[in-house]
Amino acid sequence: MNVAQRGRTKAVTSTILKDKFSWYLLPWIIAGSSFAVNLIVSIFAKDVITTGGVASLYIYILTAGIMSVSNTLPFMIGFSVRRSDYFWGTGGAIGLVGAICAAGLTFLSYVESEWIDGWGVGLYFFHLPYYSEGSAPVQFLNYFLVIVFLFYLGFAIACLAKRFGKNGMFLFSIAVLAIGTVLSYVMTERGWWIDFGHWLAGRTMLELAGGTAPLTLLFMAISYALLRRTSV
């Protein structure tokens, strides 16, 4: 990649990140409001509350991956940007946003567990047993990998929709549903669910988060291949 090409990739990244509100603030507003609700509940609750409310941020990242394609791809292609530059420029944007989110979550988890244990009302929102185990760098990596994974899951789905349209999505959904049904039937039949549960329980969080990396790469490869043949 020469300087000029890098410039165009950067242009894509900066185009995506121009929407500062959606990328830098909205994830925290969503996580923050989920936190606020839990905080209010825990004031009235007697027991210690451990909640998975951080998932709201993850779900937001998934939808951001889906929305990103229709929001910026036609614009960028129309402005003489190569599909590959769009792909890598998007990667730059989610890399940065993912790192910021992961750093923020790691920091809040540390604050929650070390400084103000349970926010004074016995609420564990950011620091969760099992989920938040490991050192700060390990936690950061966990968050980052899951965020990037969810983004590219959404991104790949949106690329599929962009490339093959409504009919393509319809066929794809049916295929996924069929495969899922067959798979779960087979697993039930052979009694694999229990084995699977044991296997999951035996993994550390880092192993699970790390397990998303090959899938993330797969989704990236699929998105790239789809983008290369997408017209606007």
Binding site: K18, N71, F75, S80, V232
Partner: peptide, 14 residues
């Protein structure tokens, strides 16, 4: 190349 399309799309918040 600069192509000014009649149907050019712009990002939502632009």
């Amino acid at each position: 190349v600069c192509f000014i399309k009649e149907s050019q799309k712009y990002p939502q918040m632009f």
